[in-house]
């Protein structure tokens, strides 16, 4: 599975989305379940999937799927790998 697919699956899993609801430009404001539990789950999930554990500040600052991509890129984890 590509990193791109892994991220998509992770977002679908932790935010309880339907596959058809997913987009790479989804914003936090569009997702009801991106609340306190969503923030924690996403951080744990990113760690589990990509090996990098966002700090609580980083996790709280994520405002959309593209921010996750940027955070990973800054840690040398490319999505197209």
């Amino acid at each position: 599975m590509s990193n791109r697919d892994k991220l998509k699956q992770l977002v679908i899993d932790v935010f309880l989305l339907d596959e058809t609801e997913f987009r790479f430009d989804l914003r936090r404001t569009e997702i009801d379940t991106w609340d306190s539990l969503g923030v924690v789950s996403l951080a744990v999930g990113v760690h589990e999937t990509f090996g990098y554990h966002p700090t609580p500040e980083e996790a709280t600052a994520l405002a959309g799927v593209d921010d996750v991509i940027a955070l990973l890129a800054a840690r040398g984890i490319a999505l197209d790998a």
Partner: peptide, 13 residues
């Protein structure tokens, strides 16, 4: 990893 994918309904988010 299991906890981020499933939540017992008795506990709030």
């Amino acid at each position: 990893p299991a906890m981020i994918r499933e939540r017992p309904p008795e506990l709030s988010r």
